[in-house]
Simulated assay, not measured.
Amino acid sequence: MRTTSDRIRQAVSFELLGLSIVTPLFGWVFDHPLDEMGVLTVAGATVATGWNYLFNLGFDRLLQRRRGDTNKTLPIRVAHAFLFETTLLLILLPLFAWWLDISLLAALLMDLSFAAFYLVYAFVFTWGYDTLFPPDRPLREAS
């Protein structure tokens, strides 16, 4: 399992890199001023960072309990990314609607676009992070 400091490094680096990509891209795509979109993405990233930490901790604990390790196969990585983005979408939907003063339906469509971007980004980032910083493997007793 990862240490707390490693989980914090992972969550913060995930959000900083994601913000640097998504803020200008979605400001342009949705035709909102960069400062308006910037405040929204920073607020969303703040919520997402906390959720990232809690979700990954819970996900790894579940893997550890069920499988005895935290190694992620391709199907597990896909499920991980999908579950994280789905739960985050539900958390952020009211924030999008309120900040941009748009309907919940319009916010849902925008939020789904963000989720689609972050679904792919989360998969690629987490795989890359695990490659650069492999999680500690539990010691196994010799038989």
Rank of each mutant, 00 (worst) to 15 (best):
R2T: 10
T3C: 00
T3A: 01
S5C: 08
D6E: 13
D6V: 11
D6R: 08
D6I: 07
D6L: 07
R7N: 14
I8A: 02
R9N: 12
Q10K: 13
Q10H: 15
Q10L: 13
A11H: 03
S13H: 05
S13R: 03
L16P: 03
P24A: 02
G27C: 05
D31W: 07
P33E: 14
P33D: 15
P33C: 09
L34C: 02
E36M: 10
G38I: 03
G38S: 07
G38K: 02
V39W: 11
T41P: 00
A45K: 00
W51K: 00
W51L: 04
N52R: 06
F55T: 04
F55I: 08
L57K: 07
L57Y: 10
L57N: 03
F59K: 02
L62V: 12
L63R: 13
R65W: 15
R65K: 15
R66N: 07
G68A: 07
T70Y: 06
P75K: 06
P75T: 06
I76E: 14
I76L: 15
I76T: 14
R77W: 11
R77C: 11
V78C: 11
A79F: 13
A79D: 08
H80V: 08
H80N: 14
H80P: 07
H80D: 15
A81V: 06
A81M: 07
F82T: 12
F84P: 00
F84R: 01
F84C: 00
E85K: 04
T86S: 14
T86I: 14
T87F: 10
T87E: 08
L89C: 05
L89G: 01
L90I: 11
L90A: 15
L92N: 01
L92H: 00
L93H: 04
P94G: 03
L95V: 12
F96Q: 05
A97E: 02
W98L: 11
W99T: 04
L100C: 02
S103D: 09
S103E: 09
L104I: 10
L104C: 05
A106N: 12
L108F: 14
L108S: 11
L109G: 07
F114H: 05
F114T: 02
A115M: 06
A115S: 10
A116W: 09
A116S: 15
L119R: 02
V120I: 15
V120K: 03
Y121M: 05
A122M: 09
V124G: 04
T126E: 14
T126S: 15
T126V: 11
L132E: 05
F133K: 11
R137W: 03
A142E: 13
S143L: 13
